[in-house]
């Protein structure tokens, strides 16, 4: 057997197998059972305990690149909040964020929910960490008009909101910086807000110390976090179906790693 060749399989073969492994389950879901972890349960319990009429803040700090991993989390939590009658206010420290806010809002506007009453999109604030700090301590002072150019003071949902402590929870959906770390450093620490996070999978290890320290109360980790949230809230949706693709994708990568290592050792033995 040519072990050298097995150590150097043409990348096009890997690409084709990976495309098949991810595309086929999207077309024909395999319905692989999904368990739910303690962090998602904690996240759900915190959100579920928020009484109707309260308001939560979504900080949409991601761009289209990270959206397939993070946006499903925002969708799942938004659905839960709307079902409970909790108002949702959107802000973003990434310029792409407000457009995702509009995506989240439009589906509910079509169902009869009212902009300004059930949700509001405050748009994008430039300035990264400094902007998060100032917004955290003075919401109305930093954003005078929302993304639709309405005066923020005229929105019923914004009545009684001075700083981020006036929200029942702040959820930072983040695909990088500025994001969770800046919210912890500049707002959660000084003001003691109820901060939760939805993180892109690659950032999860980086944010674990904040979860461990209790600065971030609970975290949803990537697409799996969204799928688990959908399952826990009793609304299995698109994220659950996408997890099949992720499963097969992981299996393909692991299979290639194993093949590469077997070939590596056999070749070494032969020599």
């Amino acid at each position: 057997m040519d072990w050298k060749k097995l150590q150097n399989i043409d990348r096009r073969i890997i690409y084709i197998l990976l495309i098949l492994a991810t595309a086929v389950p999207m077309i024909r879901p395999l319905a692989i059972p999904l368990s739910t972890g303690p962090s998602v349960h904690k996240f759900y319990q915190i959100m579920d305990a928020i009484p109707a009429g309260e308001k939560v803040l979504f900080s949409l700090d991601y761009a289209p690149s990270g959206a397939p991993d993070v946006h499903p989390q925002a969708l799942a939590v938004m659905k839960h909040m709307m079902n409970k009658g909790v108002g949702v206010v959107f802000i973003s420290f990434w310029e792409a964020g407000p457009m995702f806010g509009e995506q989240l809002i439009r589906a509910y506007e079509e169902q009869g929910y009212e902009y300004g009453v059930h949700f509001a999109n405050l748009g994008y604030v430039p300035g990264g960490e400094s902007a998060i700090k100032r917004f955290g301590e003075d919401v109305a002072g930093q954003v005078s008009r929302d993304f639709r150019n309405n005066p923020v003071s005229s929105l019923p949902i914004m009545q009684g909101i001075k700083d981020t402590r006036d929200f029942a929870a702040v959820i930072c959906f983040s695909a990088g910086n500025p994001g969770v770390q800046e919210w912890v450093r500049q707002v959660q620490g000084p003001l003691g807000i109820n901060l939760l996070a939805g993180a892109v999978t690659v950032s999860v290890p980086q944010y674990m110390p904040y979860v461990d320290a209790g600065q971030v109360k609970a975290m949803l980790a990537g697409l799996r976090g969204a799928a688990e949230y959908e399952t826990v809230s009793g609304n299995p949706g698109p994220s659950v179906a996408k997890m099949d693709a992720q499963s097969l994708g992981h299996l393909i990568i692991i299979a290639f790693i194993i093949v590469g290592n077997i070939a590596f050792f056999m070749d070494k033995k032969k020599q």
Partner: peptide
């Protein structure tokens, strides 16, 4: 990136 990672993992992850 997923495709690059799959290819890179296969080539780089050796014991």
């Amino acid at each position: 990136l997923a495709f690059y990672i799959a290819s890179a993992a296969y080539r780089a992850f050796r014991m």
